[in-house]
C-alpha cells in the first residue's frame, strides 16, 4: 500500500493567533475528502516561527516535508491535490 500523505497543522501559539485557529476545520475536512489517503493532525509549534521575524509568515502547515507559509484551507487542499497527482 502507498504511503499516506501527512498533513501537520501547526497549533502552536504563534500560528494559532496568526490564523491556524481557522485551519482547525481541516482536521474534519481532510478525512472527509480524501479518506485514508491522507493523515491530518494538529501539532504543537513546528519550530518555524521563532527564527528571526518568521512569525509574520505564520500560520504554517506541513504537507509531508513541504512547508506552507501563511497557510489557508485552500492552499493546503491544493498542496494535497498536487501531491496526490504526483504519486
Amino acid at each position: 500500500m502507498d504511503k499516506k500523505i501527512s498533513v501537520k497543522v501547526c497549533l502552536g501559539t504563534t500560528c494559532f493567533v496568526m490564523g491556524s485557529a481557522n485551519l482547525q476545520e481541516l482536521i474534519d475536512i481532510v478525512p472527509a475528502k480524501y479518506g485514508n489517503k491522507v493523515e491530518v493532525s494538529g501539532v504543537p509549534c513546528l519550530g518555524l516561527c521563532s527564527i528571526d521575524w518568521e512569525f509574520s509568515k505564520a500560520p504554517y502547515v506541513k504537507v509531508d516535508d513541504d512547508v506552507i507559509k501563511e497557510a489557508t484551507v485552500e492552499k493546503v487542499l491544493t498542496a494535497i491535490d498536487n501531491k496526490l497527482k504526483e504519486s
Binding site: T13, T14, V17, C49, F55
Partner: peptide
C-alpha cells in the same frame, strides 16, 4: 496573543 508571539511564549 501578539504579546505571547513577541516573547516567543508557547502557551501549551
Amino acid at each position: 496573543g501578539a504579546w505571547f508571539i513577541a516573547l516567543n511564549i508557547q502557551v501549551d
